[in-house]
Design a binder for these strands. Structure first.
Lengths: 130, 130
DNA sequence: AATAGTGTTCTATATGATATAGAACACGTG
DNA sequence: CACGTGTTCTATATCATATAGAACACTATT
């Protein structure tokens, strides 16, 4: 039903991994508003983890407004692609990256070229700039 | 001597905060190779934290090769601005941001425009794209 | 009505990271 | 020698994470 995996060796908590993946599934449109997510016990069984851990992820998503629920029913996707919110998050990520790049002396052109190379998919690799 | 501050309410561990700030000071050139960092007890006194916590940050930086030390002496900045390493980290940050942007449907042009706006310093704010 | 499947709440335990604390040690410097 | 380094050791306290099981209220199905 859903494509969620978990890395046990990761430093990222399991419930955060689930949280992020469902967020991505919803924002990318693979999960649409009205779709229900697996029950905490079901997903816990698949991932071989405790259902309380799954619920921790769901409740975090509920706090974010991404999931809604009614008693006795499963959690359901509430939002689709909230452009403004995601856009703000992406912008913040970009801002942090740029701040760091400027701090170590990269020029605006170098930063823009880096972005272009990444977008092209196949770049010459890191290490041959400036 | 050095400009380091700590947020006690942050979810980021104190020793990580120190770690990041010294890294930035070294990479930005405010701390040059050969400069010594404050002694763990001295910095701990200024920040009003335990000196073991400061030492934890220093040892993490030593593992990264950014600090070097000799017995009985203070930690000393080893590297200056290791372009390739920082560049790789920045590239990785950029890659993650772009992946996320593409996932939610932003086009290449929109991403490039976002970067330009951020670089210009004063952009129209988030929320008015596409 | 009975059953099964939801999420919820409660108590409990175990582990690891974080942070503090103090003592003792080895080494370099003044 | 005295002082300031970092280091090592043991210890404690707290918090986040994860697991565990029981009991509950509600929904949907049979």
């Amino acid at each position: 039903m859903v494509d969620i995996t978990v890395e046990f060796n990761s430093k990222v908590p399991i419930y955060i991994q689930i949280y992020e993946q469902i967020k991505d599934l919803a924002y990318s449109g693979k999960l649409k508003p009205g779709d229900s997510v697996p029950s905490s016990r079901a997903l816990a069984g698949l991932l071989e983890i405790n259902y309380h851990t799954v619920n921790q992820a769901y409740q975090a998503l509920w706090k974010d407004g991404l999931l809604k629920m009614e008693r006795g029913k499963r959690y359901v996707i509430a939002k689709g692609k909230p452009e403004n919110e995601v856009y703000s998050e992406i912008e913040e990520e970009g801002r942090e990256m740029i701040n760091r790049a400027l701090m170590v002396g990269l020029t605006e052109d170098e930063i823009m070229n880096l972005m272009k190379r990444i977008l092209k998919g196949k770049n010459g690799g890191a290490g041959n700039h400036a």
